[in-house]
């Protein structure tokens, strides 16, 4: 089965992002695929390249990036959720004349159309964090 995931909460205030990652890993391990993870609302904080994890915790950003590389899964941050929270890639930083960018290169910024597209291309779309 082909899954897509919608992640709504930030990695450090809720369990949902971790549950989404565990689900994605279990799905792939069971022979399924994960087409896209759409990070929306507070979920966009998963894409910050500048967060520093304590040594005794897993790095939530890097493990999604690794998952994406290993399983050919797209990681999309909702662009309107992201930029209002200060998550910018180089292009948005330039567009809005901001001094820095901070989105990890494994993540792309795009619109809600990518969530609707994920729904259209997946057998199941699962919501985490509501």
């Amino acid at each position: 089965m082909n899954f897509s995931l919608l992640v709504l909460s930030s990695p450090y205030s809720a369990q949902a992002g971790d549950s989404a990652w565990q689900f994605a890993r279990a799905a792939v391990a069971s022979g399924h695929s994960v087409y896209r993870v759409f990070f929306y609302h507070e979920g966009v904080y998963h894409g910050s390249e500048l967060g520093i994890s304590p040594q005794d915790e897993q790095d939530r950003v890097l493990r999604w990036a690794d998952f994406s590389t290993q399983n050919n899964t797209e990681l999309v941050l909702c662009i309107s959720s992201a930029i209002r929270r200060g998550l910018l890639d180089a292009g948005e930083a330039q567009r809005y004349d901001k001094p820095a960018s901070n989105v990890h290169p494994a993540f792309v910024l795009s619109g809600l159309g990518q969530l609707i597209d994920a729904s259209a291309h997946s057998d199941r779309l699962l919501t985490f964090g509501s």
Partner: peptide, 26 residues
């Protein structure tokens, strides 16, 4: 929709998805 209109902005996030889905003819 399971959250109140204010206090938690998930309501607004969900409405934006409704509008996007409608715009994409779902």
């Amino acid at each position: 929709f399971r959250h109140g209109p204010y206090g938690n902005k998930l309501s607004r996030a969900g409405l934006d998805v409704a509008l996007a889905a409608a715009a994409f003819d779902q």
